[in-house]
Design a protein around this nucleic acid. Structure first.
Lengths: 356, 356
DNA sequence: TGGTTGATGAAAGACGTCTATCATAAACTG
DNA sequence: CAGTTTATGATAGACGTCTTTCATCAACCA
């Protein structure tokens, strides 16, 4: 027999005050003497009272109103995130969650800050956004939190104090993992490795590259890591640069792409004989990277499981809105895909990187 | 403005019947003419009515009573699962879930079937167990389901029709993945690979080995896969057999262990010079495999994320108990660990395989 | 002393569902 | 036609929380 959970009525009785007073204390309405407040807080402790969120939500007909802010543009990964969100909408509504999807120009912290500042605050309970350490963004996040909104950074983090939680992978660790896998693929032989990033100014890319170089230096000192390409996450640019370097340096045995724009990379790989293809590790499972994996053009994809991340971000925002402890969880553990363990393709609709 | 979700009162009004009648229909209490029942069902359709589970649970002071049945014995992985469950207890209670942990003798389907048959049915809503295709177990599972319990198989599956859901990894795919990773580690060179299983009669082990061999044959025909060892998941047995084979065949370049008892394998590896260590891939992140990974004795660990699995199993049992659609989700995607992406160690307490 | 202020208590109504009971009807039975 | 069975409606109370209103009572100020 599970014993009943204590209710606020129990707390009030145990504290020797009325329900009204107990309620005033736990909901911080003020107008209670310090003495009574103390007794109530003690009763809460003693009984292990936890407010019944379901009942509370019922009584108020509450719905959680959250916004997710994503960069606009042709990036396939964020396109996938948008798809996931629209697919989840219906399920979320049943759980009283109303999720708003908004976009701002990519790589433009000023625009993001302005957007945050101008957010319609009409009952919004929380915001999830791709973090940026830009001071204006931080200030805007702090302002939101002062207004009681939950603020969760997604995919890319910022300084702790400006957000309630970070949901995403540990990018340095992801880079280390890539390094180790490429190292494994060189067991018993030498090699020259080409790293590609979008921009070193992006914290996530820099972190990945840092971890990558570090691991190779520490565990595979026999391998040479070349200077990185900055592809700006633009596939045509990545394509041009990689083609040029591969032509100039036929001894390249592996490529690690820490950023986006990988359809350009894939096009270069398509043009090479299978025997001359380097080992390739890149990030994010999207339509074109999946295809490249299936075709053997790419060996490993490190994917940050955007569906889980959305779920987790919502859980965090809910916890803040409910004044409940956050769900314990460190960074998301990325999935590592080879062609053998690809999940079934959700969207059978063909779609290249530039679409959507 | 999110519009209000329709309530059963709305449904009744829309169907032109009383609340009582609508209630009789949606809760299948009978005593309603087919005509009225039809009108109610149509109203449910039209309005998109979904019963408010939170309100229902509140009104009944419901708690979900679930049981998880695990094999007893010194297996480190199941020890970890037990730990996870006891840590989750408190959080679960808040969500009205009362989780009972029971154990039966490992590798003994008869005992499992007997246990299932003898389960105290006192208000139990669901059972999660490690599946076994034994006919008696299947029959016992069917009996439980006839009594309205949710039945979820965990880690190892059975024929579809005997359970409500399977929560675990796709073992064949996991074996394929192991094969591909070992293949990658042989890029540009030949090799001889030793597979180890617990017992081929265990479906999960057989599936893993099958996928492993298949992938190596298809993608890495230059590599030789030796006959497998059956270690019975016993570390001393694994240790003895591996030691013997490695001594007899110094040309072994990789080992894939699909089963348990890996602390025995690790002991053999400890005794070899770093340069002579084969590439090693095994399953499940537990205390000793983590240590082996950190020390460079093992290269890759494929982990089935038991914490996520428990959460998912509960979600499935809840869905059945709530008469709601099951959470969409295929098999769990295992995490692939190298020493670089190990999550922080939760239990700093040292504990070898045989403990607990 | 009258008026204000502050702390407290009592209680009612709402949220959506479930259970239960009682009162009607209408449809059968013999 | 009396007596049963079956279908339906009306309604009340409970679950735990939140909001709101009103009444008390004490302490304080002028």
């Amino acid at each position: 027999m599970t014993r009943r959970m204590p209710t606020l009525t129990d707390v009030a009785r145990h504290a020797g005050v009325s329900y009204a007073t107990a309620d005033r204390v736990v909901n911080g309405r003020g107008g209670v003497s310090e003495k009574s407040a103390l007794r109530v807080r003690r009763a809460v402790e003693d009984l292990g009272y936890v407010r019944n969120v379901a009942a509370a939500n019922l009584s108020q007909r509450r719905t959680y109103r959250f916004a997710v802010i994503l960069p606009s543009g042709p990036n396939a990964f964020f396109g996938k995130v948008r798809d996931i969100i629209s697919q989840e909408r219906r399920r979320l509504r049943r759980e009283l969650v109303d999720l708003r999807l908004e976009t701002v120009e990519a790589f433009d912290p000023e625009a993001l800050a302005a957007h945050l500042a101008g957010l319609a605050r009409d009952g919004l309970d929380g915001v999830a956004l791709v973090g940026s350490d830009h001071p204006k963004v931080c200030e805007a996040m702090a302002a939101l939190r002062r207004d009681g909104l939950a603020v969760v950074t997604l995919i890319s983090d910022v300084t702790d104090s400006f957000r309630d939680a970070y949901v995403g992978i540990d990018n340095r660790v992801a880079g280390c993992t890539a390094g180790r896998l490429i190292g494994l693929a060189h067991t018993g032989r030498a090699g020259r490795i080409l790293p590609i990033v979008g921009a070193l100014s992006a914290r996530d890319h820099a972190d990945r590259l840092g971890g990558f170089r570090e691991t190779l230096a520490a565990r595979h000192p026999g391998l040479t890591v070349l200077p990185e390409i900055e592809g700006r996450d633009r596939h045509e640019r990545v394509e041009a640069q990689v083609a040029e370097i591969l032509a100039a340096d036929p001894g390249i045995t592996a490529i690690y792409s820490a950023g986006a724009g990988n359809s350009g990379l894939v096009r270069v790989l398509e043009g090479r004989a299978p025997a001359e293809r380097p080992v390739v590790v890149l990030h994010e499972l999207v339509a074109h990277s999946r295809r490249a994996l299936e075709q053997g053009l790419v060996d490993v994809v490190i994917d940050q499981r955007p569906a889980e991340e959305i779920t987790l971000a919502i859980a965090h925002m809910r916890a803040v809105a409910d004044r409940m402890p956050a769900p314990a969880a460190g960074p998301v553990v990325p999935a590592i895909y080879v062609s053998e363990n690809l999940p079934p393709d959700p969207g059978a609709v063909p779609q290249g990187e530039p679409s959507r």
